[in-house]
Design a protein around this nucleic acid. Structure first.
Lengths: 400, 400
DNA sequence: CCAATTTAATTTGCTTTTCGAATTTAAGTT
DNA sequence: AACTTAAATTCGAAAAGCAAATTAAATTGG
């Protein structure tokens, strides 16, 4: 048939719908998908038989009539599969384990040597981390149905190919393959910039929005885009390089070697560099501490520090405004874990952005700040893997 | 059925495929779409019966064996429908008439009063223009199956609503409705920035690329995006405002009232303004002539003019690089009709852009310059309408 | 407490759509 | 003229989904 096996297609569609809407009765599924009630009954029967979903009694609500046959909610069967997600950063790996319904099972953090590793070494560290993670929950590595992996650098997610990553000592590594060989489990690789967007799409505001962008600030500035309910990756797989968007002609030097990058004004190292070179501040302390010093000085009214911090805010607002002007999203999510960057998330910055976007009668996009924890990335990786595991599970359903 | 009437869906799919690939034999259609040969035969039979496509003898090629039953090419039946496209600009309307297969029938240009018009007035001018256009080809307005209309401003294409346009004296006009009432023909409205992208998608490089951006320079700077083979409009329908992307904090004043917009450095009025305010050039002549003067002076080595023009180029390169960094497209198309902007399309500018994008192992996106004629916009509008006419025609096919 | 009512879910029979395999068609080749 | 090759068509069967009818599970009212 045209669209592959169609029955599989509607199974997939309904499974996704149930995953997204949480417990939901059949009649609502029919309503929202446009599939007839008869077919919903038959398809959900298949899913129930395969133990991918389960029926749960519905608690009565005041807003719906209590008469008639009561609705029966369907939800994803949490125990159907285990999914892991992890992100590799410079000195550690963060991991989470979740059930098929996205609920949290365990998390873990394990240190790795700093600097570049061989693919085999990194794969081994990941395997050890996953084993420890599984053990925490009384499981075995082989119980896991899929592992999502986020890696900094340039990654071709479709082919599991790593063009370049700060974590690896080689270029053009088929790391997806290496990893799944090492683990004996299906591995889904992606650029880490996309992970937070994925996490938002699956567990966050994606439930109610289909076009949004997510900005993350850590050491660098990252970005993920969701367009039409789908993660958009560029064509070369190198994610959206918002941090290296130019905000000043021949401006400040960026660690990427170019000039005028947004990152060169707002990243931690940029703040410290400026404050120490211009002001009398001698900052020989490590970066993270030095940043706090600069921010505190700015708050306390030190004029140099204040200028530096204010300019960072203005540049950030300008970069954001450019994004909004180009994409016209419904929503902009600023995600981060560190209080360090509060100055970029400040109302004044957002106000500044609003003033820089093209005005029309419709309201400007909503801006929300999400302070996620450290596991945000790993959870996004798991969300990414979850999609594949869902599809695989649907494909593996036997016919009656 | 799940996806609406499926037969209609496969008819639509095959018609699009034929439209895009030009004359193509059935077996290739089956190959490319994944539809079985049996079904291709039956569906194309329907399309043939409805006279939407026709069989043409295939010229023999050296690269395919001449044995066996020869392939029979299918192509869109040009005479099935007439489609018009038009764009409203400040002092005239440009129109084209094309056949169902996209071939040119006639074009026309008619002046309109400058300044804002009432919706009814503008609709009347459009009707008159269309009548003149149809007459040129020996047709009547009522022979036209669909009209695509491009309007500057903020347009909600899905609802035919014009939030604001420099051509209209009112806001929030349901202009699509007004027009189709006036014309008695189906009207499809869109923001003009999208039209060139549409034209490229349908008649230009869209045949071989699915992710690209199109930049247009006239008086302002416009942009259209094609992502995944589809035109991307923002969520508020206000097109991609590349021209009002900020390239300098608190920079030059733009006619939109904000500061530092790209347009404020590269648009015609910006060049003239700078050259006259700084240099000794007194430019009281009309803008288009003044621009030529500045450009000529720059070429002849006048230092002031040269600085102005060079900076425009650098700013443009920076804006382009930002786009590439964010989208990572396969291709960037610079489209324009006026030789005036050659300085922006120069190799040095493109080279400058290449130096400002994030480097990875894969090659940078291709950049091509398309010097289309004045009718580019109108043709894009027609291409937009063509899609709808195709779908309508498929939907109207009677069953055997 | 039982009949009527209401609403959700399921079953039944049928239609639509597509496909695979066999067949036909239209050429070239020997 | 008989054979080969490859495209297109035909034909019977299977898949998938739907509408309408039916069944199920609750509340409400007398």
């Amino acid at each position: 048939m045209v669209f592959g096996h169609q029955k599989i297609e509607s199974r997939r569609l309904l499974l996704r719908e149930i995953a997204q809407r949480g417990p939901v009765p059949r009649i609502d599924l029919a309503e929202h998908t446009g599939i007839s009630r008869a077919t919903v009954t038959s398809v959900t029967a298949d899913l129930l038989r395969g133990r991918l979903i389960e029926e749960v009694p519905r608690e009565s609500r005041s807003d719906e009539s209590a008469r008639g046959r009561p609705r029966v909610d369907l939800k994803i069967a949490g125990d159907a599969h285990l999914i892991a997600g992890l992100k590799v950063s410079d000195r550690s790996i963060s991991l989470v384990l979740m059930r098929f319904d996205g609920t949290h099972v365990a998390d873990h953090e394990c240190p790795i040597p700093t600097g570049r590793l061989t693919p085999i070494d990194l794969a081994t560290h990941i395997r050890d981390g996953l084993r420890a993670l599984a053990e925490k929950a009384g499981h075995d590595l082989s119980d896991i149905s899929g592992v999502g992996v986020g890696l900094a650098g340039v990654v071709d997610a479709d082919h599991g190919l790593v063009y370049w990553s700060p974590s690896l000592d080689q270029r053009n590594v088929p790391f997806g393959e290496v990893l799944s060989d090492t683990l004996g489990v299906a591995v889904y690789l992606d650029n880490d910039a996309n992970l937070v967007a994925m996490a938002e799409l699956t567990f966050g505001l994606g439930k109610s929005h289909s076009d949004f962008i997510v900005i993350t600030i850590e050491s660098g500035v990252g970005m993920g885009m969701v367009l039409g309910g789908q993660l958009y990756r560029g064509t070369r797989g190198c994610g959206a390089e918002f941090g290296h968007t130019k905000v000043h002609l021949d401006g400040a030097l960026c660690r990427c070697g170019q000039r005028g990058c947004l990152e060169a004004y707002v990243a931690d190292y940029a703040l410290v560099r400026e404050a120490s070179s211009v002001g009398g501040m001698s900052l020989t302390t490590p970066t993270s501490q030095a940043v706090s010093t600069v921010l505190k000085a700015a708050k306390d009214g030190d004029p140099t520090a204040r200028t530096v911090v204010e300019r960072a805010g203005k540049m950030f607002a300008m970069g954001l405004a450019n994004l909004v002007n180009i994409f016209d999203p419904e929503l902009v999510i600023l995600a981060g874990e560190q209080m360090q960057f509060d100055h970029l998330y400040a109302d004044t910055v957002i106000e500044e952005m609003r003033k820089s976007i093209v005005e029309i009668d419709k309201p400007a996009p909503e801006v929300v700040v999400h302070k996620w924890g450290n596991l945000m990335w790993a959870q996004g990786a798991a969300a990414y893997a979850l999609e594949f595991v869902q599809d695989t599970a649907v494909g593996a359903l036997e016919d009656a």
